[in-house]
């Protein structure tokens, strides 16, 4: 019995010693920026596995490994509207071992909606590796709406009657608010949930409008259960049904493309940021990568380099801030 206790205390002492040693060792960083990456890079994605953000991150990761020889390990942290993931990366060591992969919904809309108390300025934004151009505005069959012009007309005849499905405080909520302002109409914005919930509720005739990715509603457009009204892109995305007009073509000055963002914790070596820009540029040129994006989400490859990306995001943030009161 005594012997056992002795053994236990020795082991407990070893544990304690381990802690002390651990405290002094925290600063061990990952070499210089030029050689980055020297080991697997952990990518925190703000969405659960299986969606479009995850798809973009994973596709990028596959080609990242081909280019650099080091794997990108994806961690899906969808919680808290993406705020858990952004907070985690913001507070982690700035040694290039942990990267954030998100889109403007988490990086900007969360701040505008007051979900997080920090902003994109608290990160070192590296680049925009891809831009989602697959989102379309869809109307349910029961709503009887056939086009954007028709929508505007009906909404003006009965303000606040036509329902719009969103996730309150999220990206789709903002999409609805901007649409209302640009088109000069008044919709009833409801909280419906994810894309799946939007589709079910539109099919069931419980809600009239929603912004959804094209791939998910393609079949329903063909069967006539849902009607695609417009795409949010600046110019028609030729990978979608070519007959879908942009809002601008319908007479509404409204463009809302969704850039994906790669960001590091603040204070990351500029050499690392230059390196990932180099890699991202190379990936965007890869024909296999381009084909994969089109096959998965009808999305043409597009890469926006560091300086230009920062400028674009800052502008986007300013635009969105105008809706701060409505979104909160």
């Amino acid at each position: 019995m005594k012997k056992r206790q002795l053994f236990a205390s020795v082991m407990a002492g070893a544990l304690l010693l381990g802690t002390l040693a651990g405290c002094g060792n925290n600063s061990s960083a990952d070499g210089g920026g030029e050689e980055w990456p020297t080991k697997a890079v952990n990518v925190v994605v703000t969405a659960s596995a299986g969606g479009d953000t995850d798809f973009n991150a994973r596709t990028f990761a596959t080609y990242f490994e081909q280019v650099t020889g080091q794997p990108m390990v994806i961690t899906n942290t969808a919680g808290g509207g993406g705020s858990v993931a952004t907070s985690e990366v913001k507070d982690s060591k700035a040694d290039g071992s942990k990267i954030l992969f998100c889109h403007t919904g988490q990086m900007i809309v969360n701040e505008v909606a007051g979900l997080i108390d920090y902003s994109m300025d608290d990160f070192d934004i590296a680049c925009i590796p891809a831009v989602d151009k697959g989102t379309v505005l869809v109307a349910s069959k029961a709503s009887g709406i056939t086009s954007v012009e028709d929508l505007v007309e009906k909404a003006k005849a009965a303000p606040g009657e036509i329902t719009y499905a969103s996730e309150l405080g999220g990206y789709s909520h903002l999409q609805g608010l901007i649409l209302m302002e640009k088109a000069g109409i008044d919709l009833k914005i409801l909280d419906i949930g994810s894309a799946s919930d939007k589709i079910t509720n539109m099919l069931g005739g419980r809600v009239d409008l929603a912004a959804i990715s094209y791939g998910a509603v393609k079949d329903y457009a063909e069967t006539g259960d849902l009607i695609i009204l417009a795409q949010y892109n600046e110019e028609r995305n030729e990978n979608l049904d070519p007959d879908i007009p942009t809002f601008v073509e319908c007479g509404i000055d409204f463009v809302m493309e969704k850039p994906y963002i790669i960001a590091f914790p603040k204070g990351t070596d500029q050499a690392i940021i230059d390196k990932i820009n180099e890699v991202a540029a190379q990936i965007a040129e890869d024909p296999d990568y381009q084909a994969a994006l089109i096959e998965g989400y009808n999305q043409p490859a597009e890469y926006i380099a560091h300086d230009e990306a920062l400028e674009l995001l800052a502008q986007t943030r300013e635009d969105y801030m105008a809706y701060q009161d409505l979104l909160q």
Partner: peptide
């Protein structure tokens, strides 16, 4: 084309990667 839980969401992803959108 509607996934009910985490597992079927992943299965949906498996369809989408091949350019097939269940519906």
């Amino acid at each position: 084309g509607i996934p009910g839980d985490g597992v079927t969401a992943l299965l949906l992803g498996a369809f989408m990667v091949h350019g097939i959108a269940p519906g």
